[in-house]
Design a protein around this nucleic acid. Sequence first.
DNA 1: CATGAATGAGTATTCATTCAT
DNA 2: TATGAATGAATACTCATTCAT
Lengths: 190, 190, 190, 190
Amino acid sequence: MPKSQERCQEIREETKSLIIKKSILYFAKNGFAGTKISELSKHIGIAQGTIYIYFKSKEELYSEIFAISDKVCGSEKLNSFSRLPISAELKIKMLSDYVIKSLKKDEMFAAGIALYTQRLLEGQADTGFYKTTEKIIKEGQKEGSVVPGSARKLSEFYWGVVYLYAVKILYMADTTMITSEDLSRILLED
Amino acid sequence: MPKSQERCQEIREETKSLIIKKSILYFAKNGFAGTKISELSKHIGIAQGTIYIYFKSKEELYSEIFAISDKVCGSEKLNSFSRLPISAELKIKMLSDYVIKSLKKDEMFAAGIALYTQRLLEGQADTGFYKTTEKIIKEGQKEGSVVPGSARKLSEFYWGVVYLYAVKILYMADTTMITSEDLSRILLED
Amino acid sequence: MPKSQERCQEIREETKSLIIKKSILYFAKNGFAGTKISELSKHIGIAQGTIYIYFKSKEELYSEIFAISDKVCGSEKLNSFSRLPISAELKIKMLSDYVIKSLKKDEMFAAGIALYTQRLLEGQADTGFYKTTEKIIKEGQKEGSVVPGSARKLSEFYWGVVYLYAVKILYMADTTMITSEDLSRILLED
Amino acid sequence: MPKSQERCQEIREETKSLIIKKSILYFAKNGFAGTKISELSKHIGIAQGTIYIYFKSKEELYSEIFAISDKVCGSEKLNSFSRLPISAELKIKMLSDYVIKSLKKDEMFAAGIALYTQRLLEGQADTGFYKTTEKIIKEGQKEGSVVPGSARKLSEFYWGVVYLYAVKILYMADTTMITSEDLSRILLED
DNA sequence: CATGAATGAGTATTCATTCAT
DNA sequence: TATGAATGAATACTCATTCAT
């Protein structure tokens, strides 16, 4: 009995995870209103009804995806850079490196960034890693390695560009990508 | 007595123009799927049916708006910068100036940029002013005023950032904006 | 003053008459539900609004047209045949002659027949000239010139065929027509 | 557990068939413009949306119904009479018998005839069984059993009368019907 | 009176959600 | 659980009618 129950739980987890994984990309590309459950379920490879076993509504699925997208994208990783005992300049270079690499190899990362930023634009998310980036920027400005100007504005600029390329990756098959250096240059003095 | 032919034509043009003008913003903000004709017409201040006097369908209205958005945004203006007998560096500074000012004072310009770029991402528009920008970039690279790297990539980066702030303006009431100098710095050497 | 009033009245009559004349054909071809005021007015060559100066509603126009269609088609003429001091056989031949000739040369007659019969089918008209035809048939049966059988059924058959060819004329440009003899043969013994 | 593939197919076919069957009568009675999907679906006993699972639009449903109406009505049966090794006179009598009986006992047959003829009038169907009837008529004219005159005209007359009574049956509850003999008499010499 | 642009109630169509299997 | 046909509320679109000119 307990064995089969575990197995059941496992299957549940697998299916739910599949739905979320496939939905992140789909919602990131098409937006909430532009996503039809009928098409999404086809894209996932399950029946429409199955989605409603795991999620009460389209809205709930969308919400859960956002929660996931926070984790999928760099929040924790980013904070880890922030705490390293290194110069702000190096933090920025490592962060840019990490972000560009992730965008390139992991569509899910791109989708996470895209969804997070979209919700940000609609005022429905807080600016978790923007704040952390601001701190690094201020450090860098003290060091003299980061360009002067409002840290908040620079942080938004930086992540805005990341969002831009996340969206490009989702929509365009063979898109030109910026390098880690290009990204760093937004913040760093030459 | 019948209305005069001219007066009718006038009314028609005024109404069509009103619909387009108000719809650009609405579609730019809400996307195609997220726009309801019932709400759009309320926003415009006309009856639902009136929209269908001027446009066969929601889709056709959307398409026409894209055609208009080409003109609304800087295409021609941009080309005019390109032809001036001045250095590429100055061209870029003037262009950035023009773009930032337009974004700030003219929501319609922002909407035009947003819609144009969205269609670009979906592969349904050509890259008119990207090409012109590429030329200026190559000029600047010869001059030594523009950073090295693929001109196409830099052009996309530049306009991507413009798109980014266009979207911000449409969505967020009190958004932080970059300056003309920030925008120029994407292309120019310090 | 009285002069211009008369002239006004005249114009009114002319326009109203034009609307009715053109509408008979249109309604006969397309039916009530299949007739759009926008298209009908185009077909008449007037503005949509003008129709509503003369008729309260589409329904009222339709009703008036039926009243007219009674007169347009043979009711009175038919009764006149019935009262002639001649044999039933001759009455039938003359009636058939008149009907076939009218169908051929007068689309309005065809339209009248079509509309009248359609309303008959919907139970919204009485069977004025069917009754008269029944009388002639009964006379003919006494004479021995008309085939035996229910006079009502034969009358319906006869006018049904007339309806049939009325509809054909309205819909098909180059339709084959029956002769007066074919029509008579429905009722008459060889 | 998923429904079995076959059972699903079965359900789909049953529903589609139900829609078509009930729609034939409805469209035949009310015409295309006079048929509201909301009322049609009520009449069928399903939800409005269900119709759109099986048919792209009202228009498509109407078209499919016409295709079906060809089969529903006598085309094949008619051809079978034509090939029998019997006199044309007998063929006509058997055909008339079959047609009148079918009209009386099968509203669907009446609807099929009505729809087919309506489309014929609009020039959107070919004259399949008219041609076969023409052949029989020509045979009969050689035999001397059929009245002289254009075979095409007589064939149209014959089927026109069938149409007439099909329409009567659809519209009028207690309509007078012609007999098989009446129908035959259109073609046969006394 | 005549016009035709505008209206909004009515109709067609879509799509998130349910439920029998 | 998983399925996908069915549902009906929401949305797109049409058309009889009105009204300012």
